[in-house]
């Protein structure tokens, strides 16, 4: 049974799945409110924000880089949408303005990603550095444009998108799951996805095989920027306002979620499904601790400890396999 599951899903998904079961078991014993619709409802509402940003982080990490500008790219994109709505009457703005604003938001997010990707690809500067500079730039730009304040006053349907649901499924969750599916297809079946893994393992060998690696890198970061814009729009709808710095604390959590999901920190390996599992585990941990009376800060600490524990277990597991193999 285990062997069959392992062959079907891979050791990574199986291991994380077991963790998921463990977390659910522990918390359902610890709190009788854990296994309730209300709790899972709140998880479903919280998951998309972190989840979309993590998807934005995933592509660059798979390609052997990192995008430290995800949160501020999301903010700037949301700002774009907010201005379009305000320019079209604020609370009275129509749905057309929302669509136009969303498209412009996507364009802005994509442009930020494009610039990073082009700099990474053509200057060969380290992606951590490039995206860090972009992050500082976007944060400054956003603070300059908003003077550090909130922007709010949107039409009612914006909040409805953030809090509404279709057939009982929260709208943000639907957006998130659609994006997960998109990423799954992108990475599993598309040319660019294939190149992303290859570039992440060895960019020079990929170039020698006739792949335009510069274009591939530029596209990878552009897509990351587009996903940031989606995250920004969803966050705006949830909070019904935009402030530069919204979701700032998520930045390193997205990286943590990727590593937890078994993504190779050097790039080249990692699957959307296991990252999704990791995200669900993180949210369940946080909601479970919340039910037990802890706050978000303790959850953050537990997330960190959880990542360390998983990495130590992976290390021990590898050692054990090696010893067993050498023993026979």
């Amino acid at each position: 049974m285990m062997a069959w599951l392992k062959a079907r899903l891979g050791a990574e998904v199986l291991g994380l799945g077991l963790f998921l079961v463990l977390v659910v078991l522990v918390f359902s014993f610890a709190s009788d409110r854990f296994l309730t619709a209300a709790n899972f409802g709140s998880v479903a509402v919280q998951l998309p924000e972190l989840g979309l940003l993590t998807l934005a982080m995933l592509l660059p990490i798979l390609s052997g880089g990192l995008n430290l500008a995800v949160t501020y790219t999301a903010n700037i994109s949301a700002l774009t949408l907010a201005w379009v709505l305000q320019a079209n009457g604020g609370p009275e703005a129509g749905f057309g303005a929302f669509v136009l604003g969303s498209l412009l938001a996507l364009a802005v997010g994509g442009a930020a990603g494009f610039v990073m990707g082009a700099v990474v690809a053509y200057s060969r500067a380290h992606p951590i550095l490039v995206s860090l500079a972009m992050m500082i730039f976007l944060r400054g730009l956003g603070e300059y444009l908003t003077r550090g304040g909130d922007i709010s006053g949107f039409p009612d349907f914006v909040a409805a998108i953030g809090h509404g649901s279709i057939l009982g499924v929260p709208a943000p969750l639907i957006v998130f799951l659609a994006c997960v599916l998109l990423w799954q297809i992108l990475l599993g079946r598309s040319r660019l996805g294939f190149f992303t893994y290859m570039v992440g393992s060895n960019i020079e060998a990929t170039r020698y095989s006739g792949v335009n690696t510069k274009r591939a890198l530029t596209l990878i970061y552009t897509l990351s920027g587009l996903m940031c814009a989606v995250a920004g729009i969803v966050m705006m709808a949830r909070f019904n306002s935009v402030r530069v710095g919204h979701g700032e604390a998520y930045l390193l959590i997205t990286v943590l979620a990727c590593f937890l999901g078994g993504v190779d920190p050097f790039g080249g390996f990692g699957r959307v499904t296991s990252v999704l599992l990791a995200l669900v585990i993180l949210q369940l941990l946080s909601s479970g601790l919340n039910l037990l009376g802890a706050n978000q800060h303790l959850s953050t600490a537990v997330w960190g400890l959880f990542l360390i524990a998983v990495m130590v277990l992976r290390f021990g597991w590898k050692r054990w396999i090696e010893m067993r193999r050498n023993g026979t």
Partner: peptide, 29 residues
């Protein structure tokens, strides 16, 4: 080791890399 093949990736993926365009069907691999 460092240019001819992408060592950590699979045999299948290494073979497919230079001819990926011919493996597409409806835009997907």
């Amino acid at each position: 080791l460092s240019l001819g093949l992408i060592q950590p990736q699979s045999i299948a993926d290494n073979l497919a890399l230079p001819v990926l365009d011919r493996l597409l069907s409806g835009g997907l691999i």
